[in-house]
């Protein structure tokens, strides 16, 4: 009983930490100057944030851990992938980055 109470509290704390990262990601989305930096802020913070939320949930309800692990694996794989596809789409659509150097645009000019 004491153990389950401890796990509940620990899980809730981990979960709370996860939501803090989500909020930081949201702040990054608001503050960053261009779409590439926004993707960076969004993808990293939401991935770790969601992983921590799922880990916290698994500590609170150990019976659900297998399914939660499945969601974690899925998110770890798809989350960066959608960010990369978005970054690529932005660059191909001609959104210029706020950057000191753009090797991708330089190479595209060479080929053209």
């Amino acid at each position: 009983m004491i153990l389950s109470g401890f796990l509940d509290t620990l899980g809730a704390l981990v979960l709370l930490g996860g939501t803090l990262f989500l909020a930081l990601g949201g702040l990054g989305l608001v503050r960053m100057p261009d779409v590439y930096n926004r993707i960076q802020a969004g993808t990293k913070a939401t991935t770790l944030g969601t992983l921590l939320v799922l880990l916290g949930a698994a500590l609170i309800s150990p019976a659900w851990s297998v399914k939660l692990l499945l969601i974690m694996l899925f998110l770890m794989f798809t989350n960066p992938l959608s960010s990369q596809v978005l970054a690529r789409a932005a660059h191909r659509a001609g959104v210029a980055p706020v950057a000191s150097k753009d090797a991708l645009a330089d190479d595209a000019e060479d080929l053209a």
Binding site: G26, L29, R38
Partner: peptide
């Protein structure tokens, strides 16, 4: 539009939470 899709991506992941 790209900014909105990026935000949408983040919104859906927050919804999972």
């Amino acid at each position: 539009a790209t900014d909105r899709v990026v935000a949408f991506d983040a919104l859906t992941i927050i919804s999972v939470t």
